[in-house]
């Protein structure tokens, strides 16, 4: 009895227009946008810091990995005579600064991420994220915890660490949620952000102490 209605429905949708873009690419582009919004009510800091960061980092070629190896032909080989000492660590390619704002038992957090990392590749497009992408959106995601068991973070979206092109950037943003502690005390806020380095995604973690009264 309802065959007629089905036929009418089918006639109605018989000629769909072609999609305006490759469907999966359009969806993944939206996913990245949503992820950015979830990540932060972003306040972008002036790019002046970019130059400073680039200068500070200097010749860090091995992002997120071991320090660069510089072999000079003909140079004398060093001989270790004493007890082994720890190799000096290169400056971190990514810096994270945390600035809490405490109002009673409610805590908000401003995060500044800066440094040098590879630009991720969008999936499934296979192309680098556009140059206009904000620095935080180049990350593979964040995790944070307030020290009382509450954890949250953001997803990196559909991006891949293909290590094709380096970028340097800086961004300050406010984590889009505040957290209310149930009781006063001293808590440790931990924040981790992942960027693309020479050996794949690498985490950078920063902590700060929260004294809640």
């Amino acid at each position: 009895m309802t065959e007629d209605l089905k036929t009418r429905f089918e006639q109605l949708v018989a000629d769909p227009p072609p999609p305006s873009a490759v469907p999966s690419e359009a969806v993944f582009a939206r996913v990245r946008t949503v992820r950015r919004r979830r990540t932060a009510g972003v306040v972008t800091v002036a790019a002046a810091a970019v130059v400073a960061v680039a200068l500070a980092l200097g010749n860090v070629t091995n992002i997120g990995g071991a320090p660069p190896v510089t072999n000079t032909p003909g140079a004398p080989k060093s001989v270790i005579t004493g007890p082994p000492t720890a190799a000096p660590k290169p400056p971190p390619p990514i810096k994270v600064a945390l600035k809490p704002s405490i109002n009673g038992r409610t805590v908000g957090m401003t995060v500044t991420v800066s440094g040098k990392a590879f630009i991720p590749t969008g999936i499934p497009e296979g192309t680098l994220l556009p140059a206009s992408t904000e620095f935080l959106d180049m990350s593979g995601g964040t995790d944070y915890s307030f020290g009382d068991g509450y954890q949250s973070g953001s997803d990196g979206g559909s991006i891949d660490c293909t290590r094709k092109k380096l970028t340097t950037g800086s961004q300050t943003y406010v984590i889009p949620e505040t957290h209310a502690f149930k009781k006063p005390g001293t808590y440790k806020f931990t924040y981790t952000v992942r960027y693309c380095g020479t050996k794949g995604w690498f985490p950078t973690t920063a902590t700060t102490k929260l004294v809640v009264r």
């Binding site: 490759v22 469907p23 999966s24 993944f28 999936i123 499934p124 990196g156 979206g157 891949d160």
Partner: peptide, 15 residues
């Protein structure tokens, strides 16, 4: 970030 699952999802979307 799971390229395998993302590709699976992309296939679903396109299909």
């Amino acid at each position: 970030m799971d390229p395998g699952r993302d590709r699976e999802f992309a296939d679903f979307v396109d299909g």
